[in-house]
Design a protein around this nucleic acid. Structure first.
Lengths: 175, 175
DNA sequence: AGATATTGTATAGTCCGCTATGTAAAGAAT
DNA sequence: ATTCTTTACATAGCGGACTATACAATATCT
């Protein structure tokens, strides 16, 4: 495993952050002392995402799809024949990520790329019969994972949790 | 890009899930009709995790580290000289993931693997001076991302959001 | 019309998650 | 003591996120 050296932009420029000198906020200063991974939103979000991802992987493996294909499938089940550009915007992933995901989906017989009727650059993404056939099973699988994860939540708590996440997403998207 | 064919375990075994016949819960049935990605916990969790990841990447790039190294660094800043096994258990990642992350950290001059004093199989992971030097800056960076993401949350809402995530993690870990 | 800018896709390369597998050391069983 | 099992770590290979880059088709500008 040859591992080429990484190339960070500003390293090894000396970082001379003097905590006291830069007068960080009380919250930041306190976090310096008491930083706790089990109370860090970022840490928890990463952990929870991995758990969801793996739970979904197990649920949908029998359907012949993988978690990364799910968002694209959802969008295409909703409306077939979208361009890659439209999918990229809806799913908020990079264009290269979408292209690679579509490569795997095409390989797995879930989609076909057809020529766009008017725009010679664009491709239209069309679901195959196989992809259409697993729609309901996939919905059930995804809902099952959500239900499992939120077992023990009251309907109000579920609603609140969802709202919190939507708020954070909106906030981070602005940045 | 040669993309080898994927090999799902039970495909193309016919999936004969009859929604009505299997009597899914009301919630599940309803989700079949109204599945909305913007209200799916799994969908939101994935999205939020990507946004956190990228926000943290930008924050810590000047320090010469990447987000995946953060959990290991946190654990080692807390207690230097742990074995890979201990890190794997604390961070809840697979052993192979940890080994690869440690490879990159060693390459980047953040850690050294030393022989364990009593167990010939184990390695002790020790931070370098470089890794110790960026500790405070890294804490500030991570806290800054958390603060940014949770801007607009009251202290009570923050607390509740954290609690929700901890609950979901515990639930999914049991499964 | 011709030159330039923008847009839609594709690809190469990296990070970081996973599974599957290999290997050497330690521990257990006989 | 030898054999077998378990444990700690490494590696190969894939999925899926990213950036950077290339390229062709469209749109725009003069």
């Amino acid at each position: 495993m040859p591992l080429k050296p990484s190339n960070h932009k500003t390293w090894p420029a000396r970082i001379t952050h003097d905590v006291a000198g830069c007068l960080p906020s009380c919250a930041t200063l306190q976090s310096l002392m008491t930083f706790n991974h089990s109370k860090s939103a970022g840490y928890l979000v990463n952990h929870i995402a991995r758990l969801f991802f793996e739970a979904l992987r197990k649920e949908i493996d029998p359907l012949g799809i993988v978690p990364g294909q799910f968002p694209a499938l959802l969008a295409l089940w909703q409306q077939d024949g979208q361009t890659q550009r439209e999918l990229v915007e809806k799913l908020d992933v990079e264009q290269a990520t979408m292209a690679n995901t579509l490569n795997r989906m095409e390989r797995d017989g879930l989609i076909q790329r057809r020529d766009h009727p008017t725009d010679g650059r664009a491709k239209v993404i069309c679901l195959t019969e196989k992809a259409r056939a697993i729609r309901d099973d996939a919905y059930v699988a995804a809902s099952s994972v959500n239900d499992t994860a939120l077992a023990g939540f009251s309907p109000e708590e579920r609603e609140l949790f969802i709202t919190f996440m939507q708020r954070v997403i909106r906030t981070l998207q602005k940045t």
